[in-house]
């Protein structure tokens, strides 16, 4: 017989194959055991994600919407973090700041920050007590 005929004969035999007796007696219990074992192998993240998907499924939200919302959140976070903070200049020579009646700007003299700069007409006021000492000597020479 040719290999093809042998294969056809084997398939005809398979069609009449039956499971052994008692195979279906504990089928439901064994199926549930297998299912529980597979569930135990899932990580917490996968379980939570599965529950979230099950919860959201009835709302018919398109999959693309999740990615869109997540991308917008990430972009907003990056924009907030990367926004430059206001700079304070150091040293006596570079303390000029644009004055504004609506938004008073602090002026740095030396290493301390003045109390306030209330308006364009009053001079800046600075209460002195620096955080760094006046001089840094070298211990390696005298």
């Amino acid at each position: 017989m040719t290999p093809e005929e042998n294969l056809l004969k084997l398939l005809r035999l398979k069609r009449h194959e039956q499971p052994p007796p008692g195979y279906f007696d504990d089928f439901v219990a064994e199926f549930r055991d297998r299912q529980r074992a597979e569930l135990m192998q899932l990580s917490l993240r996968e379980i939570i994600w599965e529950r979230i998907c099950d919860f959201l499924q009835p709302f018919q939200v398109p999959r693309l919407a999740y990615a869109t919302v997540a991308a917008v959140a990430v972009a907003a976070s990056v924009a907030i973090i990367a926004r430059p903070s206001p700079q304070l200049s150091g040293g006596l020579a570079s303390t000029r700041q644009p004055m504004s009646l609506t938004a008073p700007q602090p002026v740095m003299i030396g290493n301390s920050v003045p109390v306030s700069m209330a308006s364009t007409s009053s001079p800046s006021v600075h209460y002195v007590l620096p955080t760094q000492p006046a001089n840094y000597a070298s211990p390696r020479s005298f």
Partner: peptide, 23 residues
Amino acid sequence: LGIRFGSGFFADPTGLIFTHAGI
């Protein structure tokens, strides 16, 4: 550039004052 305030003290009765150089 503005006004600076600090503290100091008389070290003798002739009006000699010690204070912070940054003022």
